[in-house]
Design a protein around this nucleic acid. Sequence first.
DNA 1: CCTTAAGCGAGACGGTACGTCGGGTCTTCGT
DNA 2: ACGAAGACCCGACGTACCGTCTCGCTTAAGG
Lengths: 192, 192, 192, 192
Amino acid sequence: MNRGRPRSGHVDEAVADAVRALLAEAGYQALSIDGVAARAGVGKAGIYRRWRSKAEMVFAVVVHGPHPVAPADSGSLRADLSALAEHIIDLLSGPYARLVLPGLTADLSADPALAARFQAGVIDAERALVAEILDRARARGEDAGDDPAFVHALLLGPIYTYLFLAGGEVPPGLADRLASAAVAALGTKESP
Amino acid sequence: MNRGRPRSGHVDEAVADAVRALLAEAGYQALSIDGVAARAGVGKAGIYRRWRSKAEMVFAVVVHGPHPVAPADSGSLRADLSALAEHIIDLLSGPYARLVLPGLTADLSADPALAARFQAGVIDAERALVAEILDRARARGEDAGDDPAFVHALLLGPIYTYLFLAGGEVPPGLADRLASAAVAALGTKESP
Amino acid sequence: MNRGRPRSGHVDEAVADAVRALLAEAGYQALSIDGVAARAGVGKAGIYRRWRSKAEMVFAVVVHGPHPVAPADSGSLRADLSALAEHIIDLLSGPYARLVLPGLTADLSADPALAARFQAGVIDAERALVAEILDRARARGEDAGDDPAFVHALLLGPIYTYLFLAGGEVPPGLADRLASAAVAALGTKESP
Amino acid sequence: MNRGRPRSGHVDEAVADAVRALLAEAGYQALSIDGVAARAGVGKAGIYRRWRSKAEMVFAVVVHGPHPVAPADSGSLRADLSALAEHIIDLLSGPYARLVLPGLTADLSADPALAARFQAGVIDAERALVAEILDRARARGEDAGDDPAFVHALLLGPIYTYLFLAGGEVPPGLADRLASAAVAALGTKESP
DNA sequence: CCTTAAGCGAGACGGTACGTCGGGTCTTCGT
DNA sequence: ACGAAGACCCGACGTACCGTCTCGCTTAAGG
């Protein structure tokens, strides 16, 4: 049985609001636990009771999960992948992800436990979407390979590169071009 | 003419050694200017006189530039791209890049000036290599498209994804598969 | 009429035990309400229901009051005062008083209400003992002055000084010497 | 040779001012290092660089030492001791000592090193004054005993008792009465 | 007997202060 | 003028307690 005073949902809400507000104002690096606590009108202990680090907190608040985005079934592999790529572009250039992802990625590299949760909650979820799209294509008789992780990397990687390693903007038509590249790659023998 | 005592090369060496040692011991996030100064037996002022931030210092020391890697000319676009991909994999999974890149990427997103220098010094240099490879292919009569940046993103992005967003390891044969995908993409009309 | 569940004596016992144990282990300053509650297996509310502060709690537990030490009647003022001084020395150098008094005194200076209770429960009680001794002496025809508080200060003050302001140890024979000093002071005209 | 930037006297002054102001406003217990740093416009590190605790800081600032109060030589032991007692009363009921002493005494009991410094800097200094007075009296042919520490305790103890253990006020004429008591005690054989 | 008020252990709550660490700047002396 | 050294102000860190407040559960007295 659960003993003691139960945790208050109000804290979670207030922290989530404060995190989003402060991220928008100053970005991930400038976000501090002290600052969030003060802005949320919450004790620091209430935050540390829930999350062990800034990275965990932001991860929980911003990446918390609405990734159930069912992949559209347009009847063609290329169109499905293009839609998925467009979805990833939207996600990564969205209001918060853009501010959060580089810093969060850095923290992941120093916290294997959190990295595992990111892997499971975000990467694996997206790979599952790719797998579903490929399965459907295979059912239709299209050539769909057998490595959803590779196809996923072929979509996510270039998008991440444009956004966070190169200039910061995604070129127009990128989703289509990535989908075409992926389809072309699937229809190729890798060694001559 | 320069007056006063000239800068001592000894400082640069000592700092470079200290940065490498401390990176290996504790990683990028745990690296501090104080720590580097103490380890190098150097004053903090001597460091700030050279670089404006931790990110600049590490960037200068670790990514300092020896990227003159002439792209091998193997006579085939696919083989050239594969060699380049292999080179990128080696670079990114090298001893320091692996420890440094996620944190450095995060700092880039908060320091536009440094981001521009990273863009110019690393991204543009690699894009130029791709451009050279594509030019050679075109001269040979192969289909080479007109967007080296896209081809570069197609190589670097998935590698970065595997190393820093997903598990941390690059699957075997990745360089070949990426090169094949790029070549296939180039031989495709992007709109049906 | 008292309704509701009556207070459990078990709490008082458990708290008293915990306070004594923790005092012995770490002293007054390191004693915390959280610590006492945890050690006693008691809720913090149960403690705050009984006492308003750490000082009150410790005061109640350690100085709880059994000071009814009837002053021995030896037939001589000097001997009576010496016995009382010896008693005070024993009290103040006892196992807990020694750990508690300096900190408790400090808290008194910040809590007038508690100070008044300390004054009434400890100081006034001891002054009453002195008054009784002086009355007996006066009845015997000895010179006993008319200011028990002064005589009491003449006994308690030096003892406190030796124990808590100077080194920490009471010199041998102190009780006798203080009694002699007090008697001598009583037999003196204060202004020539 | 001393290397590095020397400590700034401005910090010492600012801290001393802030400590005095905050003591007057809220007392010793409510004084915090954070508060002093903020009020003084000084970093906490600057404080911790100088003193290891609140008690050390306050001790250094308030009790800093100028106790060179030469003992008046009035030609009589009783008058000298009375003057000294009056001086002690003034000291202890002075603006800061009153706020500081109880809390400081408490901290002494938890910090033997500081206790030793208090003993050496304050108690021993006052005992030396007593010793000097007694020496002068002995030179005059008066009976002066051989235990300055005892005489000192006979003066300081009752004063401390009145101020910090009993009500808080010193009764009028106390200095004279303590001096008389001390003189009387010196002229007495301690064992019947 | 059955309500019901108050007690109980537990522990979360908003806060404050702790002592430490790092950032980026400034100031000394010696080279 | 540069060098090492190190103090400067600032602000965040993660921890520990404070005193208060819910929880769900006894526990007895009063109706």
